[in-house]
């Protein structure tokens, strides 16, 4: 590995680091809101990785003008722009589920939720969905 490789790739590495911070938050933290925040970090890092693929050295924002000839790739922008708005809509859906879980169980900590479920279905039946 040379310095040139590292210089050309360090952006991607930081984005992957951020992704992993989000991923760790999702799997290691029990609070459901914290998990959603972790998912948001993961999502934003993926967006940044995606956008960074479209950068062209010496390019400018993709708005046509007589003064410029080199433009950044518009395709990642289009895909990510819509993904951001869809992302907030789905996050809101997740938050709505969290609110309902809190109202039904009185807690949003994962281990307490599992314990409560275990109380109700002690042997064999573990999922909440298969009540007769």
């Amino acid at each position: 590995m040379t310095w040139e490789t590292a210089g050309g790739l360090y952006n991607y590495w930081i984005f992957i680091l951020l992704m992993m911070i989000g991923f760790y938050t999702v799997i290691a933290r029990g609070n459901l809101i914290k998990k959603l925040v972790g998912l948001n970090i993961f999502q934003t890092s993926v967006f940044m990785l995606y956008i960074s693929m479209g950068v062209v050295d010496g390019g400018t924002a993709p708005i046509l003008s007589d003064r410029f000839t080199v433009y950044t790739n518009p395709l990642p922008s289009v895909l990510i722009l819509t993904a951001i708005v869809v992302g907030i809509a789905t996050t809101a859906l997740g938050l709505a589920l969290v609110v309902r879980i809190r109202e039904a169980y009185g807690t949003i900590e994962e281990d307490e939720l599992l314990a409560l479920d275990h109380e109700d279905f002690p042997a064999g039946r573990t999922s909440a969905g298969d009540t007769p």
Partner: peptide, 21 residues
């Protein structure tokens, strides 16, 4: 990274609506 439309969306959605929700 020259993605001005994305920056605009992220600033209004991520820092605005998302925080409020």
């Amino acid at each position: 990274m020259d993605a001005v439309d994305v920056a605009f969306t992220e600033a209004s959605v991520g820092a605005g609506i998302s925080t409020v929700l």
